[in-house]
Amino acid sequence: MFTIYHWIFLAGFAICLISCLVQFFKVILSGLPKDFSHPLGKTLPAIFYSFTGAMSPTKKETAYLHLPTYTAGIIFHIGTFWGLFYLIVLFFNIQLPEWLGYSSTVLLIISAICGLSILIKRRIVSKLRNLSNPDDYISNILVTGFQILLAVTILNNQILTVLLIYSTVLFLYLPIGKLRHTIYFFTSRIHLGFFYGWRGVWPIRKHNT
């Protein structure tokens, strides 16, 4: 049975979704830039490569030079998306096997630790601290807090209301702060893939000379 908190949550989610979709379609509908030059490569395989090979730790310097941070970031994001899935489960009171609940709790705690470590790194490493603004901290804290609260809620459903209110705040903040990279990550990889594909740089060719 839906309570007032369920409806508040739904309203917050709807505002977030509409705002994100507006931002996403604003970018998508403007299309890829018209390029009058003669292409040297193919853009579709390059866009695919942009989301796959180019992101791999074997190719991406920011990954292989910073493997602990990269790994923590990946786990943090997996935890977030799994958390969003589990939030739906709890919201609709869907019954899942008990082992899945315990596994999710473990995943969310590990993920939250990763989020926390990234937050601490941002605070103590001078170059990151000076690059950051309050939004960077708030965004991390909101998501890390969401994961912790969700992990606790999985074990104790009594605090579902608190989770719903917290999640509403998270959803309302998402389109206005850094978390909106959820939208722009995808368009960014598409544009980069298009650029390097058109010019024949991506996908990386086998060295055959």
Partner: peptide, 20 residues
């Protein structure tokens, strides 16, 4: 345009780019 807006909104301040 779409490309400019995309790249203006994408950076997450991870700071890993320094070494590149």
């Amino acid at each position: 345009n779409g490309k400019f807006i995309t790249h203006l909104n994408s950076c997450v301040h991870c700071g890993l780019c320094g070494e590149s």
